[in-house]
């Protein structure tokens, strides 16, 4: 949801549906490389990460690749904190993103909905 705020701050338009739809262009620079690196990393597909990383380094530079992996690894941890504590959205985020959560499919991850779905 912070991607929306980034777009507002930079007057750029990002396709938020690209967060949950794998075939859409996000509008973020090097978005395809970021997506490949992130997906392989979070799925623990280290073979693919090892193949993609040097290619991405050619396109983006080593420092940016390392920094993208730095962010991905951090969120692989913090999503677990959120999911394991059932932490609610901040009220301002909840109010500002109701429609976006529906259109992107993020609403299906709501903790109450998960409890109904899985028990």
């Amino acid at each position: 949801m912070l991607l929306r705020a980034s777009g507002e701050q930079t007057d750029k338009t990002y396709d938020l549906n690209s967060v949950t739809s794998e075939n859409l262009d996000s509008g973020v620079e090097h978005g395809d490389w970021l997506r490949k690196l992130t997906e392989a990393t979070i799925r623990g597909d280290w073979l693919t990460v090892g193949e993609v990383r040097p290619q991405a380094e050619v396109e983006m530079g080593t420092q940016k690749v390392v920094d993208a992996l730095t962010v991905a690894s951090a969120f692989n941890g913090i999503t677990r904190v959120a999911d394991a504590t059932g932490i609610p959205l901040d009220s301002t985020t909840a109010e500002a993103t109701t429609e976006m959560r529906d259109t992107t499919g993020i609403q299906q991850f709501d903790y109450g909905a998960k409890t109904e779905r899985y028990g």
Binding site: M1, L2, L3, A5, S6, G7, Q9, T10, K12, Y14, S18, V19, T20, S26, V28, E29, H30, G31, L34, R35, L37, T38, E39, I42, R43, G61, Q63, K64, D67, A68, T70, V71, A72, A74, F75, N76, T79, R80, A82, D83, I87, P88, L89, I106, F109, D110, Y111, K114
Partner: peptide, 24 residues
């Protein structure tokens, strides 16, 4: 404080959240 932009960082973060099915 990284070499990638805020938007690139948020895109990575958002993809991680989606893959991990995190609501927050």
């Amino acid at each position: 404080p990284l070499s990638i932009s805020q938007a690139q960082a948020e895109f990575v973060a958002a993809r991680v959240s989606a893959i991990n099915e995190c609501f927050y």
